[in-house]
Write a protein that binds this DNA or RNA. Structure first.
Lengths: 246, 246
DNA sequence: CCAGTTTATGTCCAACAGGCGAAAACTTGT
DNA sequence: ACAAGTTTTCGCCTGTTGGACATAAACTGG
């Protein structure tokens, strides 16, 4: 805290930084990789074999390389735990820098949110497992808090963007899709309403195909797909829209 | 890029990082401080007197200290350019880490978004000035891009949160508030509808007072205030709400 | 006291979303 | 072939929301 909260002297930023004792700080990247598995939102975690936090579960990630960008780095690190080609979406989440967040000394962490569609079962190393996001195991560092941030972000974005495409397989029926939404949002979503809303927003379209429904009979379900498979904001937010020019 | 994009060997993250050549990377914090000034959304910038980027305009900020957290650091750095007590809101925006974003060598930057209410005119050092966000001067580094991120974030949040409190003075009339919204959003906002929406969402309330309107006469305007003066999400997003239990 | 200006209130309408029930389309069993 | 059961689809109704607009209210100045 600056004394009195007033304006300090107009030092140049570089010099000002030096006398505060800028230190060599490590920087790591982490990823919260989410996938709907068996109707549950799940996170990819690995069990630490070595200290610090030995035996606890942690997010995939690692130290930032000297010549790579953040996006580049998280993809490289992630490749050690899962096939990165399966990722349908990856975005930056937040950066944490509390001085004591890492027992090994000052380490900043930039966390990412990654999504994998529900239809695939990526191969993972032995130390790596999927855990339900609503029932996390004992986790090291501040990783549990980061997972919660990611869930919140995902829930919000499901409502005003087309992120659904990243959770669902390329083609799906409405009842499947509503199950994915239910798993991610934590509450029921009526397939009927979901269909109407996503169609009106132009997020999804019918492929023309249809597939027989579950084994006990029933009307065949129409097959849909997302029209665009990269993130877009599709809900021009409610209030305060620019005046319509019709 | 990993060859074939497959799964790498299961190295521990720390060791994996070392052989990639983890380097001493500097970390800086930056802030996009926005305020509505004379009906225009404006950014606080300072002119660099020394290289790199000498003579260009830059965001306030500086090197992260060795023992401080990110939030702590940005407040300290900001105190050199403006009275931090005037900030009504401060949130993390994004972190940039392209290896070439800083000519002096590898420097990560975590950017913040800060807001100052429209009614005050904070004292600033000689090298520091307010610039219209829609008409930026020549800026160094990637700072112009960061300002654009901040504007987008603010526009979005005005629609589904109560951030308005951070742009407006503690008390205001509806026509004043609609001018602030217009400046921040870039389009007209009808005071009538704004009032109805913000009242229904419980964001604002009448103080009971009223003030005479502009110098040329007119009905006195009712005075309002925001009920809560810290960020809250007030629009439980449209679609996909939990089923109502009425 | 009237004209002009600004704010407040109310109404209309279109869009939207949630709920529900009926119809459609299919499977299985008799 | 037909009935029963299941799942999806479609249409209707309702309550809410937000943008536009018109009218009423309140005040100033001449």
């Amino acid at each position: 805290m600056m004394p009195m909260g007033g304006i300090g002297v107009g030092l140049d930023d570089d010099s000002a930084a030096l006398d505060t004792g800028a230190a060599v700080s490590a920087h790591e990247v982490l990823a919260v990789v989410l996938q709907i598995r068996h109707d549950r939102l799940s996170v990819l975690l690995w069990r630490r074999a070595l200290p610090p936090c030995e035996g606890l579960w942690a997010l995939p990630g690692g130290r930032l390389g000297g010549t790579e960008g953040l996006d580049e780095s998280i993809r490289r690190q992630l490749a050690q735990k899962v096939d990165v080609r399966d990722l349908t979406h990856l975005e930056q989440l937040e950066t944490r820098g509390e001085p004591d967040r890492h027992p090994r000394g000052r380490t900043l962490a930039t966390a990412y949110l990654g999504l994998i569609p529900a239809d695939i079962d990526p191969a993972t190393p032995d130390d790596t497992e999927w855990h339900p996001a609503s029932d996390l195991p004992a986790m090291g560092f501040d990783h549990a808090a980061i997972v919660h941030s990611a869930r919140r972000r995902l829930r919000a974005k499901l409502s005003y963007t087309n992120v659904g495409f990243a959770l669902a397989p390329p083609e799906f029926t409405m009842s499947e899709l509503s199950r994915y939404y239910r798993a991610a949002l934590g509450h029921d979503v009526a397939a009927t309403n979901l269909r109407r809303v996503l169609l009106r927003r132009g997020q999804i379209e019918e492929t023309g195909e249809s597939v027989p429904s579950g084994r006990s009979g029933g009307r065949p379900a129409a097959v849909f797909r997302f029209r665009v498979r990269r993130m877009e904001i599709t809900d021009a937010f409610a209030v305060l829209r620019p005046p319509s020019d019709t």
